[in-house]
Amino acid sequence: MKKSILLLAVVLLIAASVSLFAQGTAETGSKSFVPSKDIEWVVTSSPGGGSDIYTRVISDIMNRKNLANGKTFLVMNKTDGGGEVGRLQVSRVSAGNIADHTLLTFNSGDHAPMLKNTANRIENFTPIAVMAVDKQLLYIGEYAKYKTFNEVLNAVKAGNNIVIAGSKGDDIATYEMLVKELGVSQNQIAFITNNATSDAITSVLGGHVDLVMSKPAAADQYVIAGKLTPVLALSETRFTGNLASAPTLSEVGPYKNIENPIWRGVVGPKSMSAEAADFWSNAFKAVAESEEWKKEYIEKYKLVPEFRDRAAATEYMQNFQKLTLATLGK
């Protein structure tokens, strides 16, 4: 009895491995890549946040337009180690079928801390696409002491201290650019890092800080309700719509404009085959060109559409890395 079970198990095992191999050879034999299994898409931040929504909108559009050969996207939120663990895991996926079916949401807000805190570099990934660019503004609350950015600057000159609240990563970098351009110290205009932009908005609504830094999407509803007013566009040009009233820094005084473009992209593991990378780059291009993407993401969250394909994204991310490492002094 036991023997027969053992025999059966061995036979099954062989059968299984044969069919696996058969699949494997079929894959490598064909030149162009088509997804043959479900795709694991890693997001290194929590469900419900900006990166998560970005990922789910794209995967939803890909499903609706059948861009992934009818395969399902499994979005995995891997937040260990501030996201570094998820990024490291993706970078280490070994070549093969799994590597071709692994994607990672990768933004400047992921890239900068990775460079700062770990030895992981963009060379360990295969850049696939850059989808959009986001920028920030400074806002005041309803009962703010200073009503314009000029008043803020005058207050600083008069010896008062100003506090800006913002989120992590990109916001800190933009703040440092701003302070440097204004030529003031980090005590004169201080910055409070919050875990999320919503926390920063809470503190300005309660009147605990003077200004809040936010991307248009997170502050949108508060601007409509009159609870927040934009006072400075951290951009080369003014924003449009209800944000048009905010001047850029060069309009305020003898300064250069501050702009720190926050890009949202996608990468795969380094070991991803060139065929698969091309396939995904084209699929993301199709998403970027779709009406759904424009309506459900770009317009809704007020981003700047800026698609870069595989080659352009690689160059863009490498360039970002060079600049960031230089600022970090690494």
């Binding site: 929590s46 419900g48 509803q221």
Partner: peptide, 25 residues
Amino acid sequence: GIPGSGTGAVLLGGLMMWGLNPGPL
């Protein structure tokens, strides 16, 4: 539109996905 907890933040993300705008309005 301010999440008081992690779960609140997820619900908030949900509101946006459903096309609602969480916030003072």
